[in-house]
Amino acid sequence: MSAKQATAASVGLLNCHICGQLSRLKRGLHEACCPRCGSALHARKPNSIPRTWALLIAAMILYVPANLLPMMHTSSLFGSQSDTIMSGVVYFWTTGSWYLALIIFFASIMVPLLKMLALMVLLVSVQRSSRWQREQRARLYRLVEFVGRWSMLDIYVVAVIVALVQLKALATIQPGPGAIAFGAVVVLTMFAALTFDPRLIWEPQRESHG
């Protein structure tokens, strides 16, 4: 590898995020189209920091009702019951399925929480133009992108159970408002990860160009 750390942007080249084609930015222009695939080209994702913050804050607000409101209502001959994510975890834990309790605890409670924390760390460090642990932060970003989807787990569990348990004799299970909030958290954090530009970790000062 060459000793100097030249980036595409520093020599006036734009990297297409869709097809990976490098092309030269015309003088005086801030935006262009990829000559190969026609996607819009930007040296950085536009307004990455404010957009990611907005999505992240919305997700953090909705994380509260997602955890407090019930995901499911069960009504049977033995009475009715509302289940939040945490009570589902407790249910599996006390009935001996501790591995499922752990899977749901991690996928539904820890992953969204850690993901939001990680995005916050990334945003704050980028805003302060920090040079601290850049490789680790790049790795953290890839991890956030990779694990975020697993939070959908509980939504699918609710969907399948609600569809199956419609037998009036035994019990009816209805989805609760927590599922809506929870689905919104997953989607918002996924969009937040997509709008965050990892190139800012390496060159924070170029953000203002948009």
Binding site: Q5, A6, T7, A8, A9, V11, L13, N15, H17, G20, L22, A138, Y141, R142, P198, R199, I201, W202, E203
Partner: peptide, 8 residues
């Protein structure tokens, strides 16, 4: 160019 850090 690297799609994550733009290094050539």
């Amino acid at each position: 160019a690297c799609h994550e850090c733009d290094l050539l």
